[in-house]
């Protein structure tokens, strides 16, 4: 049930993101009216501080935000889980080197790390993706390595090795299936951390280049209104929350299926 809800939400988001230009009533950066106009027929969700249509910004925001979050999370998982599993499977100095590198990267506060990298190289989208990917991948690495460690010491892995199976076979056939569950659970959360990280970056004046709309920055730009009981910032924040909940419902469902428990509702 909740899985279906999750899938439905993700589907709607994807349609909105893909067909944004056809769905949005106005352009992403079109300046139409006065600042903070109220909700009306003309502007269903009012206007933002520069007089741009809030609804259109939200719709285009879906495109930028989801695209960015999805690509970063997938890249981070590819990088992090692969290196994590290799480290666990090979052990020895490979494990040491990879683990120390990750330790070093993780011991630097992530905002400071991002501040350093983005201030040195600039805040263009590729650098933004690369920076957040690296930061996220270190977290994935740790989890993948820790869980894979538990699997590697199992007898069946031992047997496979004695049998002379290659590294990639061990990883694909023995380790990966057994650590999918925690990795999946992590995926659901990492996904929304990307939005949060982007909005935290805008706290330091870094982040997406204007006038592109993204939900993280939209929350940041309007956040001050909430203490005056104006719900405008809840719109982008709610959009992020709904997507997060939906993605995690799907993850839970997959988790349940893969765990082999029979009491799936």
């Amino acid at each position: 049930m909740s899985a279906k809800f999750g899938i439905l939400v993700v589907l709607i988001y994807s349609i909105v993101a893909i067909f944004a230009p056809f769905i949005a009533p106005y352009g992403e950066r079109e300046i139409l009216g006065r600042s903070f106009e109220l909700w009306s027929d003309k502007y269903p969700l009012g206007t933002d501080n520069l007089g741009r249509d809030m609804l259109s910004r939200m719709i285009f925001g879906a495109r930028n935000t989801i695209g960015l979050a999805l690509s970063i999370t997938i890249l981070a998982f590819l990088l992090g889980s692969l290196t994590g599993m290799i480290a666990a499977a090979l052990g020895g100095w490979v494990d040491q080197i990879l683990s120390r590198i990750v330790d070093v990267l993780m011991s630097i506060p992530s905002l400071i790390f991002a501040l350093l990298i983005l201030s040195i190289f600039g805040t263009s989208v590729p650098y933004l993706i690369a920076t957040i990917t690296v930061i996220d991948a270190t977290r994935v690495f740790r989890l993948a390595r820790a869980t894979a460690m538990n699997v590697v010491v199992m007898d069946y892995v031992e047997v496979a090795r004695v049998r002379g199976e290659k590294l990639d076979w061990v990883i694909r056939k023995e380790i990966l299936p057994n650590i999918t569950a925690p990795l999946l659970a992590e995926f659901g959360l990492r996904f929304c951390f990307v939005f949060l990280f982007i909005s935290a970056l805008s706290f330091l004046g870094l982040g997406l280049q204007p006038p592109s709309a993204d939900w993280g920055s939209m929350v940041r730009d309007n956040a001050s209104l909430i203490t005056f009981e104006d719900i405008t910032p809840l719109l982008p924040a709610g959009a992020i929350a709904l997507l997060t909940v939906a993605v995690n419902f799907i993850v839970d469902w997959l988790l349940h299926k893969s765990s082999g428990l029979k009491d799936v509702s």
């Binding site: 805040t123 982040g207 006038p211």
Partner: peptide, 19 residues
Amino acid sequence: KEHAAAAGIEIEVVREPSD
């Protein structure tokens, strides 16, 4: 940027780090 666009002038806004 939007004002200038109406006069056919192209401005690219670059957000620099505050730092």
